[in-house]
Design a binder for these strands. Structure first.
Lengths: 211, 211
DNA sequence: CCTTGTGAAGTTATTCACAGCA
DNA sequence: TGCTGTGAATAACTTCACAAGG
């Protein structure tokens, strides 16, 4: 085999964007690196560098065959399989995510929610059943869970994530402001902090106004 | 004055994290770069490099005075003022954001929502009134709007964002999967795509399992 | 001694420049 | 000519190594 090298982080992010772009119905069969680049605001060189990491897919003069690109990217991103997702913490954000239609399209199946509030346990949100947090361990034994989305209150985040790791979860999407680093090599934690994005935008606007 | 240099992007992101960390009630008056670094999973050098960009705040042997750090970072991030935010598109994600308590703490005031569905126009979500999209221009004339959060359906994203720019909005937080680049130098668009984060995590897990 | 601040070295990511091919 | 693929140059970012200071 040629290269099992893991892709650079930035490349992965950009591949996700190429993928979403190419999913939109395209009139043409081929697309050039420059067209992709212009639509997403990157340079065409970086697009080509990214795409050559997937193998030699381009055809000089014509560009890249969209169908092939999509297939190749979806394999690399792991979208040729279905991912089972649980939502841990079914408050406002958690339940909004359970209703978010964008996931199923990409083969992310939300298979259960977990919470500690008696008010919602055993209820359903968007057809997805909510269980008590204590049931996670059993649930994981009986179901394949690939990704846990953590939307518990900040002060519970650390404990919850450690508990999830002890249950054997390998992929965690942490929506809380708390930073938790994975102690285990094979557990990956990605963090999304909406507040940080607001703070960043505020800072950028702030410097714009001053200059 | 010494330097009006704009801060590196990564530094801004990290400063936001330092800020959130330092906001938590701390027992001590001083904190060292190493303590910050360990809690957030960075190196202590990078923390010091970031913090020296704010001026010489550190005291050898003691560390950084938390109160001073918070004050300095909040000035740089622009949190010494209040930011007025509108939510454009009050569907599931938009209304979840309107209920999200994390913003007000950082002086982000959601002052209005906008949508085109008659079902919700003139209603209130979490005490915030929803107006018809057509009223944005007037609204902006009568109210200072610093940041527009775009949570409209994907196919409306491009048009909506261009419309917001034409209305004079300078800061946009784009939650749709559509990439829209700012045509104007002084308009900043930040993009948050939840699906991309899922795709990234899937890809990382995917490569983990293969190796 | 402990912790900051910082030049130098090292690493990673991006752009430049151009060969090669349909 | 138009577009890919890629080595070389450049830029951005991080780590290393250590001087300085309470």
């Amino acid at each position: 085999m040629k290269k099992i090298k893991t892709l650079p982080n930035r490349t992965i992010t950009r591949l996700s964007l190429y993928y979403q772009l190419l999913l939109k119905p395209q009139e043409r069969e081929f697309i050039s690196s420059k067209e992709i680049a212009d639509q997403l605001g990157f340079s065409s060189e970086i697009v080509r560098k990214d795409l050559t990491l997937l193998g030699q897919l381009g055809i000089p003069k014509k560009g890249y065959k969209i169908k092939n690109l999509l297939e190749r990217i979806s394999i690399v991103l792991g979208l040729n399989k279905t991912w089972n997702v649980i939502i841990v913490g079914c408050g406002k954000l958690g339940s909004a995510l359970m209703k978010y239609p964008g996931f199923r399209e990409h083969k992310f199946n939300i298979i259960a929610g977990f919470d500690i509030s008696k008010k919602i346990i055993n209820k359903k949100i968007n057809g997805i059943k909510i269980y008590h947090l204590n049931h996670i361990k059993d649930f994981i034994k009986q179901n394949r869970v690939d990704i846990a989305v953590v939307t518990v209150p900040q002060e519970e985040a650390h404990r919850t994530i450690n508990y999830l790791i002890s249950c054997g979860i390998k992929g965690i999407l942490n929506f809380t402001p708390t930073v938790v680093n994975s102690t285990k090599e094979d557990v990956k934690i990605l963090k999304i902090d909406l507040t940080v994005e607001f703070l960043r935008l505020a800072c950028i606007l702030n410097t714009l106004n001053k200059s």
